[in-house]
């Protein structure tokens, strides 16, 4: 006689067995169970502090004692639009935009190479190369760049060896982007921002290019499109979600950073520094909060515009 397995195996013993059976029958309850803690975290801690911040921006400060006056007022927002503060906003947003555009331009070919041609070991090398800078301390990187860009730094030395000092000097003579040396110019700030945030652009662009089948590119060429046309009509539109995702990183990270422009640059404040200066050192939380609302607002507008442009259609 052969022993046959029962059609229905017995219940698992104990409350755990009971629980898994009933959870299996009520998948919605399971979902609720899984989602509640993160939602609470997000809702209370994150949104809560965001709204508290927003509320702070409607307070004002007694400038002498540094104590906060909790009467709702728009005074702080008016202060945001005095020329010196407006300069900070414009400076920061322009820098963030330039960094984002440059990051996209640099990231695209790198990501394209990685997605199309790199296989096996090369792919590993690529990921390592992209991720490696992310592992080292942010401050170490920034200080390293200070040494690279300094007047008596590595880059200047190299330029001197190449007998190109005249070219660098001519560049540094230029208004706005120039300065006494790269390390005290907007160009220096820009280069360091670009370096530090580049991985955040490359990875999403690479992910989006990876999802474009090779046959689409061949099809485009087959239908008569020269490589430039293929780039414009096929690759860029399909990589757009990745570029937008990456630009959200590079743009918002640049908007919020306060370390890089303090170490590399011309001492002109960026939003992050203004926030730091007003809340950390001057105790002017309302103005700091008002400054902080600006990037939040800009990112909101940016995401809305990106959605309207169809950047997320292919997701």
């Amino acid at each position: 006689m052969t022993v046959q397995a029962a059609i229905v195996s017995p219940k698992r013993v104990g409350p755990a067995g009971e629980l898994s059976d009933s959870l299996w029958r009520n998948p919605r309850f399971l979902l609720l169970l899984l989602l509640t803690p993160p939602l609470l975290w997000l809702g209370v801690i994150y949104l809560g502090s965001l709204f508290a911040l927003l509320a702070q921006s409607f307070f004002s400060i007694d400038e002498f004692s540094g104590l906060i006056n909790r009467e709702p007022t728009l005074k702080t927002y008016r202060e945001l639009f005095v020329p010196a503060n407006l300069d900070i906003l414009i400076r920061t947003v322009s820098m963030a935009a330039m960094v984002t555009i440059a990051a996209a331009a640099v990231a695209f070919p790198v990501a394209y190479f990685a997605a199309r041609y790199a296989t096996g070991r090369w792919k590993a090398v690529f990921y390592l190369g992209i991720m490696l800078p992310l592992w080292s301390s942010y401050l170490v990187k920034v200080y390293a760049w200070k040494l690279i860009l300094a007047k008596e730094g590595i880059l200047n030395w190299l330029v001197g060896k190449l007998h190109l000092t005249w070219l660098l000097d001519a560049y540094l003579q230029a208004p706005l982007i120039g300065g006494n040396s790269l390390s005290v110019s907007y160009t220096g700030t820009f280069l360091v921002f670009l370096y530090v945030w580049l991985p955040f652009m490359i990875l999403p662009v690479q992910a989006s290019l990876e999802r474009v089948p090779a046959s689409l590119i061949e099809a485009s060429g087959d239908l008569g499109a020269a490589p430039g046309q293929t780039l414009r009509h096929v690759l860029l539109p399909l990589a757009l979600p990745g570029i937008v995702a990456g630009s959200i990183f590079t743009f918002s990270l640049t908007l919020g950073d306060y370390i890089i422009p303090q170490i590399i640059g011309s001492s002109r404040l960026f939003i992050g520094q203004a926030v730091y200066a007003h809340q950390g050192t001057a105790g002017n939380i309302p103005l700091a909060a008002a400054f902080t609302v600006v990037p939040v607002l800009i990112m909101g507008i940016y995401l809305y515009a990106a959605k309207r442009l169809g950047a997320f259609d292919a997701l």
Binding site: A219, G221, D222, L223, A314
Partner: peptide, 20 residues
Amino acid sequence: IPPYRRNVNTVFQDYALFPH
């Protein structure tokens, strides 16, 4: 001669239609 200069067209196995 690159593909885009050949008056030859291909129907791909996966059709390769442009999703966008």
